[in-house]
Structures are given as C-alpha cells and as structure tokens.
Design a protein around this nucleic acid. Structure first.
Length: 270
DNA sequence: CGAACGACCTGCAGGC
DNA sequence: TGCCTGCAGGTCGTTC
C-alpha cells in the first residue's frame, strides 16, 4: 500500500493521538521484519512521551526526549488506532499502548516494514543520505538536472532513487512521467533542464493531489482498516496497460524497468 | 563511483 | 477443487 501520500495520510491521522502522549507499553508480537526489531526497543520507548511525530520520506519518526523510534510501512504495512481489548488481526506485529482505551497497531503481511530505535535520527544510516522532500523547498528541476548529469540509468529509476528525491514510488513515478510527457526509459542524464523543471512540478502536483484526496477521505483513523481508501482513484497510467491513453487514445504500453512494472504512452511520452 | 539484480515475505489472481 | 506461476505499493546489499 504505502507510497508517500499514504504515509503522509497515516501521519496526519495518527498524529493527534500520539503527540504529547506517553507510550505506556510496546508489545512486539513478531520481530522478524525487514530487520529484526531491536530487543531493547520496548525498554527504550516505554514510558517515553512522543513529543513530535514527523515524516522523512516514507519513514515515520516518533520523537521522544530520549531518542527516536523509526517506523517504515514497507510494501504492505499499515497503522491503526484501536481499543486495546479488541482482538488483534493476522499479521499484527507491534502494538503501542497509549491509554487504557487506545493503542496503535502495526499490521504488515509481507513484513518488509521496520521498527527501529536511534538516539540521533539525522545520523541514522537509513536517513542520513536521503534526498530532499518532493513537497519541500529544496526540491526542484535544477536539483534533478544537476544530480542526473552523466547518469545512464532510466529516468524512472532515477526519480525513484531516494538519494535524489524521497517518496516517489512506482505508482507516482509512472504518473509524474506521463504528466511530464517523458518516456520512463529515457536516460536520466540526457534530459534537459527545462524538462526536469516540468517533471519536478508534476511530481509535486501528483503527490500533492494524492495527499489531498487522502485527507478528504481521512476520518480519525480509529476503528478503520488503516486504508485511506483513495488508492487507484484518478490514476492515468498505473494499472492501465492495454487501455486507452486519456490524452491521445492510443494503447498504453507495459514494460519492466528495474524489475518494476512500468506503464506509459508511446505517443505522449518521448 | 554507477548499474543491474537478488533478496526479504505473504497473499492473490489466473491458467491448467 | 487444487497446484503452480507470476505479480504486488519498498529498498537494501552484493556483485560486476
């Protein structure tokens, strides 16, 4: 499920229930995630007050005075707020108790997610070398342009590399390239400054719109399935291989780039 | 350094 | 119905 808009929607949904609140207990039901959950994570986070909940790329940061809990949803992870006495579901791996009436549960069938602890998140190996936030002030076409000089990798792979820009996953990479009229397999180093300006703008637009849609369907994240429910709305190319291009009506083509499914219009994207 | 690819894991859809 | 294959929203680590 999670691309950047889903992570941002999750953040907005759970933040009001986390910030300023103490995690009284952390239950680990299954520690075998992308990396093993550190054995001392419960002891580190327990009784700590979550001063702030932030997002960096697709990582959620539970910041306390003692350190930061890093949470990543991986490919299939989701967070739900529930009553602690309700039954857990299959693949619920972690539960953070907040009040006698409320806990945060992490469900992740594929277990590609992560729960880690760091005392200095800015220097953490997973976070240290991340590129700029696509919706922040440091991201621009000129940034993509200068970072891509000499690179032969396909532009789709390039914008999905979070050392260049964080948070552009497989869905929105395809969507942004369609909106920018750029062929996904074009070498990143052979795209002009002007086209990168357009691409950066489309990345911002497509992610911003998806976050807005998530925000409109978002309630309070309590007793929901953790799924914002807007996924697949208004996608122009992702999942539409073989169907008609919404711009020129020619048949959208599927291919694979970096072992990821890619859909594009051979006529609109060059 | 960059590029390509395997790896991690479960669930589901489709073909036979 | 059951078995097999391939595919899925991420991204790290290894190899060349």
């Amino acid at each position: 499920m999670p691309e950047l808009p889903e992570v941002e929607t999750t953040l907005r949904g759970i933040r009001p229930h986390l910030e300023g609140r103490r995690i009284s207990q952390l239950h680990v039901f299954e520690s075998r995630l992308r990396w093993p959950i550190p054995a001392d994570l419960p002891a580190q986070i327990e009784a700590a007050v979550v001063e702030r909940l932030e997002r960096r790329g697709k990582y959620l940061l539970f910041m306390t005075s003692r350190g930061t809990m890093i949470v990543h949803l991986g490919m299939s992870g989701s967070l739900r707020l529930e009553h602690p006495h309700t039954a857990t579901r299959k693949h619920d791996h972690v539960q953070a108790d907040l009040t006698p009436e409320l806990c945060l549960r992490f469900n992740d069938p594929r277990r590609f997610g992560a729960w880690l602890w760091t005392e200095n998140w800015r220097q953490h190996p997973l976070l240290r070398n991340l590129g700029p936030e696509p919706l922040g002030p440091d991201f621009s076409g000129s940034h993509l342009f200068s970072a891509s000089r000499g690179r032969t990798t396909a532009v789709k792979n390039f914008i999905m590399d979070h050392h260049q820009v964080v948070g552009v996953g497989n869905i929105y990479a395809a969507e942004a390239l369609f909106l920018a009229g750029i062929h996904p397999a074009r070498a990143a180093g052979r795209i002009s400054r002007a086209r990168y300006d357009i691409l950066a703008d489309r990345i911002r637009t497509v992610l911003g719109n998806a976050i807005e849609m998530g925000g409109t369907t978002l309630r309070d994240f309590i007793n929901t399935d953790g799924n914002p429910g807007y996924f697949k709305q208004s996608l122009r190319v992702y999942g539409r291989a073989g169907q008609a291009c919404l711009t020129c009506a020619s048949t959208l083509k599927a291919s694979r780039l970096g072992q990821r499914a890619t859909v594009y219009c051979t006529r609109c994207q060059r």
